[in-house]
Computed example of a mutant assay.
Amino acid sequence: MASSNRLIFLGFLAAGALVGCASQKPAETPDAVRKRPEAESIRGKQEPGETVTELDANGDGRTDVWEYRVKDVLVRKELDLNWDGRVDVTQYLDPQGAKVREVMDLDYDGKVDATYHYAEGKRTKGERDLDGDGKADSWLYYENDTLVRKERDANHDGRVDYWEYWENGQVDRIGEDLDGDGTVDQWTRNPNPAAAKPKE
């Protein structure tokens, strides 16, 4: 395996850890997928002016990576992480090659389940569709690429009713809206808060 392919393969392994955290719900039938027209397809269409390069990262003779360029500038990359011949992750890049957006198909149904936004190469926000209806119902917020808050629409009424605030890599407190008015009614604090990070 060429050294460049080894690097891509190692990237697959790292990204595969994210996919391993996906829910274990079975893949939907094609009819069920068609009933979700609002869900974004994980695989984009080749735009006018784009050229595509197909790569075989694991050496099995099948394409695992699709790179899209406009005037020799890489603008999008599609990855097949589980080597089933279908795209699992699509990354959108700025002209300098930094990620600005990444979408993932966590349940292998061909539709986007998770979207992450980046600024200057750092993750800033995430959106997840936990129930498979094609609409985000969980939101993640990051500061300096570190998770600081999660929000969720647990009862699927279109409003956030659950909040997690994170500090030092663990949940610090949880807020819940019990009466559906959009405000926190109950707070639960972590009984074992993370120790403050030592000053450098």
Rank of each mutant, 00 (worst) to 15 (best):
R43E: 15
R62E: 13
G126H: 02
K25R: 13
D64L: 06
A15L: 15
A15M: 14
G175Q: 00
W66H: 10
E127M: 08
G44Y: 02
Y165E: 11
A154T: 13
D56R: 09
H156E: 07
K150N: 09
R101K: 15
L74K: 15
G180A: 09
E151I: 03
W139A: 00
G16M: 00
N190L: 03
L79H: 06
N168I: 06
K197Q: 14
V65G: 04
N58Q: 08
T53M: 13
S4L: 14
W139S: 00
L55A: 07
D131S: 03
R76M: 07
Q46N: 10
G44P: 03
R101G: 10
V87F: 01
W83T: 11
I174Y: 00
D172P: 00
R36I: 06
E143W: 04
A195M: 13
A14W: 10
D131R: 06
M104N: 08
E127F: 06
A114H: 09
A27K: 12
D133S: 02
R43H: 10
D88A: 02
E47L: 15
D133K: 09
D56V: 11
T188K: 08
G44N: 05
G126A: 04
K99M: 14
W166S: 01
L93N: 06
W166C: 01
E164A: 03
K99Q: 14
N5M: 12
R123S: 00
E28N: 10
A57H: 07
K45Y: 03
W163F: 06
A98L: 14
A98Q: 15
D56N: 13
G169E: 09
L10W: 13
D109A: 05
L140K: 12
T183E: 13
V19G: 07
V112M: 01
G182K: 03
G85N: 07
V89S: 06
E167H: 12
L81K: 01
K71T: 13
D80W: 03
N155Q: 09
K197A: 15
N144Y: 04
L7S: 14
R34G: 01
R189D: 03
E47T: 05
T63H: 08
N192W: 08
E40W: 01
A27F: 05
D60M: 09
V100T: 15
I42L: 08
N5K: 13
Q46L: 15
V33Q: 02
A195D: 14
D94S: 10
W83I: 07
K111A: 01
K135Y: 06
T124Y: 04
K150Q: 12
A27V: 12
Q46R: 15
L74V: 12
E67C: 12
A22Q: 11
F9P: 00
E120Q: 13
E78H: 04
D161K: 05
W66I: 08
V160A: 12
Y68Q: 12
K150D: 07
K150C: 02
S3G: 11
P198D: 06
C21F: 12
Y165C: 00
R149Y: 09
D179H: 05
G97V: 08
A39T: 05
M104C: 07
E143A: 12
R152M: 10
R62P: 02
D84S: 04
Y162L: 12
Y162E: 07
R159L: 11
G134F: 02
R101F: 09
C21H: 13
I42K: 02
R101A: 12
E151L: 08
S41K: 11
D137K: 00
